[in-house]
């Protein structure tokens, strides 16, 4: 029973990291109708930003964390502006390949700047561990759970109730109609990239704090798993990304604990394949029929 609860909590924590990243994929897909395969690498940039500011420049951890989020948000806007905006009217294959190119560019820039050796992530989240009925919960794990829960609630409220949030929904549904309303779709897309990348930075911080070592390819695996989570939950759906992330995190941790560490990844991706066979639109994805 202790193992079960322990695994569940670890799964929830990993799942919330996936969910944070998946939100970036799904929001960008929802509004720009593109798969931003460079999104995973923003996690890596976020983690390196903390290493550079806290370990190397000896800035206080709080400053490092804020810098990381700001840098990634700016990077998101920059990537969109330089790489994707010129391709707004190009075939989706061109955009997809460009995204993969941006991914390699970021990885290799990190390789140039920080070298190929993995660096250790500084202790930025100093919280005591909890022991509860024989279950050991790390302070970081709990912080991850609580903070992502707060972020998800805040994001949901933002999308649902604010003027900008509504403009984002309107733009994702019908760009021309949104423009006719006076909404600048370009600006809305920029903001979406900024939010998605800021969330990726936060995910990068939690990932670094939980898994300690960072290298230029660090973002690839959580990135692809979070993408899986976004598709699993229904790409374009925000609650879907949250749910998909958490479910995949739990499946992964349970597979590691009860089946085999080696098989865990195969099981995670297998679950996606199964979902795509049963419900191609994903868990909460809508099958939108256009009215003519």
């Amino acid at each position: 029973m202790t193992t079960f609860i322990q695994t569940l909590i670890d799964g929830l924590s990993l799942g919330s990291i996936y969910a944070l990243i998946a939100l970036g994929y799904t929001m960008v897909y929802g509004i720009a109708k593109m798969l931003n395969f460079a999104h995973g690498d923003v996690i890596m940039v976020g983690a390196y930003a903390v290493i550079a500011s806290v370990s190397m420049a000896s800035l206080p951890p709080v400053v490092g964390l804020i810098l990381s989020v700001v840098i990634c948000a700016a990077l998101g806007i920059l990537i969109e502006f330089l790489a994707y905006k010129p391709l707004r009217k190009s075939p989706s294959l061109a955009v997809l390949i460009t995204a993969i190119g941006v991914s390699y560019l970021l990885q290799n820039l990190a390789l140039l700047i920080f070298g190929s050796e993995q660096l250790s992530f500084p202790q930025v989240i100093n919280l005591p561990d909890f022991a509860f009925a024989g279950v050991q919960i790390k302070g970081v794990t709990l912080a991850t759970l609580v903070i992502t829960a707060v972020i998800m609630i805040a994001l949901t409220l933002f999308i649902k109730t604010t003027k900008l949030g509504k403009a984002m929904r309107a733009s994702s549904e019908d760009k021309d109609a949104a423009e006719l309303m006076g909404i600048s779709v370009n600006r809305t897309i920029s903001i979406t990239f900024a939010i998605g990348s800021a969330l990726a930075a936060i995910a990068g911080i939690f990932y670094g704090a939980s898994y300690v070592y960072i290298k230029p390819t660090t973002g690839a695996m959580p990135g692809i798993k979070a993408f899986t989570a976004a598709v699993f939950g229904g790409i374009g759906s925000i609650p879907g990304a949250m749910l998909g992330g958490i479910i995949l995190g739990i499946i992964e941790k349970f597979s590691q604990a009860y089946i085999s560490t080696l098989w865990a990844d195969a099981i995670v991706f297998g679950v996606l394949v199964l979902m795509l066979v049963i419900k191609p639109t994903g868990l909460l994805g809508k099958d939108i029929k256009e009215k003519v």
Binding site: K166, R169, A170, E173, D174, D176, A177, K286, I288, K291, V292
Partner: peptide
């Protein structure tokens, strides 16, 4: 043309 209201809002 075709109204183009935001169907999900």
């Amino acid at each position: 043309e075709g109204r183009r209201v935001f169907l999900q809002m």
